[in-house]
Design a protein around this nucleic acid. Structure first.
Lengths: 145, 145
DNA sequence: CTGAAACGATTAAATGTCAAACTATTTTTT
DNA sequence: AAAAAATAGTTTGACATTTAATCGTTTCAG
């Protein structure tokens, strides 16, 4: 294949990857916003649900956002009574963040919705296609830079 | 395959898709921020470069953002002297947005950088893999909802 | 033990994002 | 032609995001 055609293929593939992903993200994201949650808020609650209480730094690394960001997201979740901060007694630099009852209820229900939406989205691909897609995406993500 | 395993596969594929795409986006996006442009700003300039002057509504639909958003992005580009607004004379509701010389220079150079980065990113996949990835992503994006 | 370095969290400033309300202009209806 | 509907753009308010600066706390080295 000529270099020029190779470039076109690469750009074309990139575009399809972006469009497809955005499209899926938008539809799955709607389940979150239907529940009154942003994607980040959902991510925080989901991490707390599945990994248990943790400090803000760990939350940040779990959802791949900056710590400055997490402060605000948790502020907003706290205002809504979905999570609670507890300053650690042993090391007062740490804030442990934990779900409230209300928060747990909401994230359990919303997670189920989101999970179903993801399964529906991926359902347009056969199992084999999904495996292939996963493999290719993993390859793309590898060279962490 | 059992339903449970099917669900796991779907969630797993979704995660890989998101991670891989984020990873690529971050690295390609660095070329834009190196040039002092945000992703949105790049998108606007690129549209103007390749499609020629257009009104804000068309810019918005081209980069898939809300019109309220575009107003601000173009405000910021205008402040930097990269684009220029011209109120249409026939229909005064329309603003035609066009590149300045400075804007054209910047986007031509930056686009080349970004294009090279994309080609490099996709280069970890063989041509055949790229074709497969493109096809699968297209399938995922289809059911516009 | 004390000062320096490291670390977790917070804050601030710049930009982006959307949705919704609003303005100005044009087109359509009656 | 006047009223109503549609359209392009702007503004506003709430949230997100990053980077960099700052605050308070803890650890560690001398």
């Amino acid at each position: 294949m000529k270099q020029d055609a190779k470039s076109k293929l690469a750009l074309n593939t990139y575009t399809k990857l972006m469009r497809g992903t955005e499209s899926v993200t938008a539809r799955v994201g709607r389940k979150m916003s239907d529940a009154g949650l942003t994607i980040s808020q959902f991510g925080v609650l989901e991490a707390l649900l599945h990994k248990g209480p943790m400090c803000q730094r760990d939350v940040a690394s779990k959802i791949l956002k900056s710590t400055g960001n997490i402060t605000l997201v948790i502020d907003n979740l706290e205002k809504q009574g979905l999570v609670q901060r507890e300053r650690s007694l042993e090391d007062r630099r740490y804030c442990t963040v934990l779900l409230t009852g209300k928060g747990r209820e909401l994230i359990v229900a919303t997670f189920a919705e989101v999970e179903a939406a993801i399964i529906a989205e991926m359902g347009v691909l056969t199992d084999e296609e999904q495996q292939t897609l996963g493999k290719l995406c993993k390859k793309l993500g590898l060279r962490e830079g």
